[in-house]
Write a protein that binds this DNA or RNA. Structure first.
Lengths: 331, 331
DNA sequence: GTACTTATGCTCAGGTTTAGCATAAATCCC
DNA sequence: GGGATTTATGCTAAACCTGAGCATAAGTAC
């Protein structure tokens, strides 16, 4: 008996329906792939962009590949010359404002993928941007960003006050406080998407003022805008990654073959946008046996040299799940 | 200043490309929606099926709605006459084995949705099935299912032994142990999909023997099969829901307006496929202030009457995230 | 009224997490 | 060379969370 091949990419389509060419045309859509391609370089989280930083890399989904994932992987790997360590589908967006004149709708299937920015020669590649350029309020590594109290909180308070009715106004403000960690609420780094959506609703990001509407004068527009909702897709990817690093050992896909524990920690901090307690971080990593010593010792920089480690790839088998909770620092 | 509407469903498509009709045709796909519609009735987890339980409800994605989610919601609500409390996109599958003769690929966008099976009159609706019919090994509420040791473990061991090479064989077996909680590994109820995929690879589910291949004689085929990878989609939905109930208060979408804590617990147990420690369960629920007393008291059945509670809808605002970890019982 | 069933309050023992203290081993700078 | 500075690393007390179980309350079944 020969077992069949894995069905990882096998069909998921519903039962076939007899349908005419016209019906087929009516139900056909144009599908595109959009990638949030993340690296961490020099302690900064970076994303690959196109069009001078205004869009995420995107391309039509072509029927040449086995699956969506294979399609994306092939396409990105030719662009970046780097193998993708980790690929995960994010979300499928559809929209009827676009492409309608063609009689078809466009569907965007978005993916999160992890890689490294520098090629093996250490050469910088074009198109990479710091992701905090688009979300400056998300970087809490040196404490709460000043813009949060100076610009965002007042603007949100004004927006809340505009609601019709006292109840609606206080509901708005409560939502703002929870999402942005205002007035005693804790900052939750995973709410990237919710924060962006809230700013959108409040008219505080440029994307909210398209379609011919001019932004109001003197209005505070936050962060660098992107075209076509790509910033929302980026927010989705950031949120997913920030959640994922806490229970899955995916950070290692962003690391070189060997690394010090500080480098590892800084990579996590870059993604999470928070600083971590050093001793607890190493305890967690070592306790879970995620890494093993290479025997080498780093020599660079000031301070006592650090042992170098490598990721124990075996943990991916040993524990299909567990992994890697983050000890987040309070202050 | 009038803030713009929320962009919850706004465009995510990439920059427009000039393209000919032929190119459009080449990149066009047929999109379908597939729903994993879950309810819990009488302490049993149920899913809505069609075609005598062989498929999940599915339909073409039509351009009449604002968004994918709206499309799904409208379509399901007309079918079930029940409002959908919670809808979440699961995954988008694509496949090139199907529909290729049409020159188009089919894409299936799958959703998880929670509702209640009985309408307000308490009438049973047709098409609902117990989900453990398709995954009998997933129900650990009365301890480890007998079939696990009697049929699954031996079959997987045989499959592992078939691998070429000792290393490959022991890697297979290790994977089987981790996924199915064999040989000292803990059972992890969230690995529904991984288990199904493993059984597929090992040729232990009927779906693995399609395409004209007959299943080997005397082979143990597990659970009730579905068409078109729908069982894989169901596994995806079960896994997602089992994960989600631990950190988001979604169970309440499956409950009636008022309920006892035991009913709530049994609903969670039905989904998780495990039994919980009663006192700890209530401690957790009350501690998090997820519910409030209605003042009423249940009278039904034996034993001391229970206080009735209702979900505090406000927590959805108060804590955009937190919520609801499960106190899983050991034995 | 006794047995049984379910509801509910409370507590103990471990484990995990947070927050620091303390020390080691380099470089920096004069 | 030697103190200041930087980074690495070991260790621990206190707070908090979680699993497990005892004990009691308040009904139904017979």
């Amino acid at each position: 008996m020969t077992p069949p091949a894995a069905n990882t990419q096998a069909t998921a389509a519903p039962a076939p329906l007899a349908q005419s060419a016209a019906e087929r045309e009516q139900h056909s859509v144009q599908a595109d792939l959009v990638a949030v391609l993340v690296a961490v370089t020099g302690g900064q989280p970076r994303i690959l962009t196109t069009q001078a930083g205004e869009t995420l890399p995107a391309g039509p989904f072509t029927a040449n590949h086995r699956s969506l994932q294979a399609s994306l992987r092939a396409w990105v790997e030719t662009q970046t010359h780097h193998p993708l360590g980790f690929v995960e589908q994010l979300y499928t967006f559809a929209d009827r404002d676009r492409s309608q004149e063609l009689g078809m709708r466009a569907i965007s299937i978005s993916y999160l993928a992890l890689t490294r920015e520098l090629d093996d020669a250490g050469q910088a590649q074009p198109g990479w941007q710091d992701w905090y350029r688009y979300f400056p309020w998300e970087d809490w590594r040196s404490g709460a960003p000043a813009m949060l109290g100076q610009r965002i909180a007042p603007a949100l308070q004004a927006w809340a006050a505009q609601a019709t009715g006292k109840a609606a106004a206080s509901a708005r403000w409560e939502r703002a406080c929870v999402t942005f960690g205002l007035e005693g609420s804790d900052w939750n780094e995973e709410l990237v998407l919710q924060r962006y959506e809230l700013l959108f609703e409040a008219g505080l990001v440029a994307e909210a003022w398209r379609d011919g509407m001019a932004a109001p004068q003197g209005q505070t527009l936050l962060g660098t805008a992107m075209r076509n909702d790509h910033r929302r897709i980026l927010a989705t990817g950031m949120a997913r990654l920030r959640a994922k690093i806490k229970y899955r050992p995916v950070v290692f896909e962003l690391m070189a073959g060997s690394f010090s524990l500080l480098q590892l920690q800084q990579t996590v901090e870059a993604l999470a946008g928070r600083s971590l307690h050093k001793q607890n971080f190493r305890r967690l990593i070592e306790q879970q046996a995620l890494v093993e010593e290479t025997g080498e010792i780093s020599s660079q920089g000031a301070g006592r040299p650090a042992k170098l480690f490598r990721f124990r790839r075996n943990v991916l088998v040993e524990r299909a799940v567990a992994g890697n909770k983050l000890p987040l620092a309070r202050g």
